[in-house]
Amino acid sequence: MKRHLLSAADLTREDAELVLTTAEEMRSLADRPIKKLPALRGRTVVNLFFEDSTRTRISFEAAAKRLSADVINFSAKGSSLSKGESLKDTALTLEAMGADAVVVRHGASGAPHRLAHSGWVRSSVVNAGDGTHEHPTQALLDAFTMWRHIGESKPGGLEGRRVAIVGDVLHSRVARSNALLLRTLGAEVTLVAPPTLLPVGVETWPVETSYDLDAVIPKADAVMMLRVQRERMNAAFFPTAREYSRRYGLDGRRMATLQDHTIVMHPGPMVRGMEITADVADSARSVIVEQVTNGVAVRMAVLYLLLGGSEPAVGGDE
């Protein structure tokens, strides 16, 4: 049975498009006076965050609450996790409390997989970012944003669209999930980064790679900038920040070479002046704020499809 959402690779094209069409309906809720639906009444969603996060946690919390679920927030700081409790004991606690879904973010790649397949909990597990591995709901909200802007909001709309993902691919779970999901949806993905910031084995990904940003972006329909994750860097990956932003940052001059319909995206948090300049981030092409709005709708769709019925409608196999 499909119960979990651990990787963007778990989603078939039908699953992914079902999430996107469902998200479209969820998004229309934002225009109504009462922003609440009864679908998950009486269900409990636990946000289990071992790593700091603002937008993802708030987004999941808002999504679960708009579907009338009960939400328990559990963060590593201020809990027994800081006293040395193991993932297993935390999971058993959650199970004893009767959680229907666990949304987990963890610094270690594979932690959500462990939680889902260890038999410690019976609830659905949703990966909200694990180490440098995956962040499937971010990929879904990015795809949803593209779908609305360059995909005509219909199934198959992203077929053949060109997406450039630029920056610190090595440390980015967003890049991996996006590459997998966009490929599933038929888009062509090009990763642009200095050689030191491309992961080992990137040639096995379903993507093109390039070291030259100026050559790639004039053809792109969407340009996604990634944050340089300094907190995960324990070596020198590029000489200076200034050199990085000159070669791989998106500034006004480069933005002028984009096609008219091309959108600029960023999963956040942004470092203005590093990978993206303020005038680009605040320009009319930028859909960065909309990505956050869409995040709530997409997470509502995922929670609804996993928990709303007697059995989940999307997700990976047991």
């Binding site: 079902l18 069409t21 469902t22 309906e25 969820m26 229309s28 109504r32 639906l37 009864p38 679908a39 609804y304 499809l305 996993l306 928990l307 709303g308 019925g309 007697s310 059995e311 989940p312 409608a313």
Partner: peptide
């Protein structure tokens, strides 16, 4: 007006596709 999420048998079947609500 889509009523899917308000149905009393929502929990008895796999999660259903939502249909458009346009007010």
């Amino acid at each position: 007006l889509d009523v899917t999420m308000y149905r009393d048998d929502l929990r008895l079947k796999p999660a259903r596709t939502l249909l458009p609500t346009e007010i």
